[in-house]
Nucleic acid binder design. Structure first.
Length: 361
DNA sequence: AGTATTTGACCCTG
DNA sequence: CAGGGTCAAATACT
């Protein structure tokens, strides 16, 4: 009896210890000039570790095998290292279940994938743009009319599903009562490494800088932006924005995000424009993760954004706000309260380039 | 030509 | 069995 308990607890304790160690390492990296990728990797690892611990607690079948080896950190600068030590992705079990022609198992596991919903309100005069873009590149793979809903539900999966075995998906459903509200349901955590988005922001600050060319190219792979659009958007950064979160008790790592306001858009098809044109598509998901203060409310003074107002941007976006109405209504993952908050903080502090001198006024 | 989206069919769950 | 979620061929776009 006692032994059985131990066999369950030991892996859990190991995971938690690992999370702690990783956090320590992350702290060290915060004080150094480590690459954002390194820090982001650590954050991913930490989250994975906690996630695994949670699934152990839940007895969940959601297995994320983050095997952190001490040597990994030293090779973090190599992008390949991410792939090499990437967690055992959900794709793996999909593949497994395919291989064994075991669809039932596959669906069982799919059911256990972390899932949470967020509502995004788009308050623009001419049409929504940007709010559904959470910093990741999504590819639409289906659309379905839902019984009782006026609007069809769109199904999206991570663009890097095949290249990086990232199984994150999301569903976008426009609200019946208020068409300006989009209900976005996320499933699964991103195991992919997306473009170094914050670096991209930095590169946009240093517009034209030669060394940032690659980053621009990489962003464009996401097919979300033309450089002009991106620039436009970052100017819009200058208006104030807020992050509001009511419930972040999920065990997942994406923490779907608030959006910065972006330029008005004439498009009739809200969802399309939202998915394809918004600036945030290339913004760092970690940065846009809601960093929650005690009051669950975080805002950044426009003053802090002034450095982005580089040009004579005429957009007036006071009414062009995107707001997360609510977040993270976790369905299958266990709320973890304060525990989660600390992770969010780590995430934010780790990725946000506060050390970029130009970022602040 | 390569990549993304659309859409009907298929499969699973409740 | 109905409804939801995913697949994959066809189509559109760049």
């Amino acid at each position: 009896m006692e032994k059985a308990m131990d066999t369950e607890r030991i892996p859990l304790i190991n995971e938690l210890n690992q999370g702690k160690e990783l956090t320590e390492q992350l702290r060290k990296h915060l004080n150094s000039f480590s690459a954002n990728e390194t820090r982001q990797f650590l954050v991913e690892k930490i989250l994975g570790s906690y996630e695994k611990a949670l699934s152990l607690l839940n007895g969940s079948a959601f297995v994320v095998d983050h095997e952190l080896k001490p040597t990994i950190i030293s090779s973090l600068e190599s992008p390949n290292s991410f792939a090499d030590c990437s967690p055992r992705s959900e794709e793996d079990w999909v593949q497994e279940s395919k291989d064994h022609n075991c669809h039932k198992e596959h669906y069982k596991k799919r059911k256990t994938m972390p899932r949470w919903t967020e509502q995004v309100r788009v308050c623009t005069g001419s049409g929504p743009e940007g709010p559904l873009n959470d910093g990741y590149c999504w590819r639409k793979y289906g659309q379905k009319d839902i019984l009782g809903s006026k609007f069809p539900r769109g199904y999206y999966r991570c663009t890097h599903r095949h290249t990086q075995d990232c199984l994150a998906t999301k569903q976008v459903q426009r609200s019946d009562e208020d068409p300006t509200i989009f209900e976005v349901t996320y499933r699964g955590r991103h195991t992919c490494i997306q473009a170094p988005n914050l670096s991209a922001v930095a590169s946009m600050i240093n517009v034209g800088s030669e060394e940032n060319k690659d980053q621009h190219q990489q962003q464009q792979q996401c097919r979300e932006e033309t450089p002009e659009k991106t620039q436009d958007s970052i100017f819009n950064f200058g208006t104030d924005f807020t992050i509001k979160s009511e419930d972040l008790g999920t065990g997942d790592d994406i923490f779907p995000s608030f959006m910065f306001p972006s330029a008005p858009n004439e498009s009739e098809n809200a969802e399309e424009s939202v998915m394809e044109k918004s600036f945030m598509g290339d913004f760092c998901p970690s940065f846009i993760s809601p960093t929650i203060s005690e009051s669950n409310y975080f805002s950044v003074s426009p003053c802090h954004m002034n450095s982005f107002e580089l040009g004579n941007n005429e957009h007036t976006l006071q009414s062009d706000h995107t707001q997360i109405i609510s977040t993270s209504t976790s369905i299958t993952s266990t709320p973890i309260g304060d525990f989660d908050f600390s992770l969010i903080k780590v995430d934010f502090e780790t990725n946000f380039p506060f050390d970029v001198p130009k970022f602040f006024c």
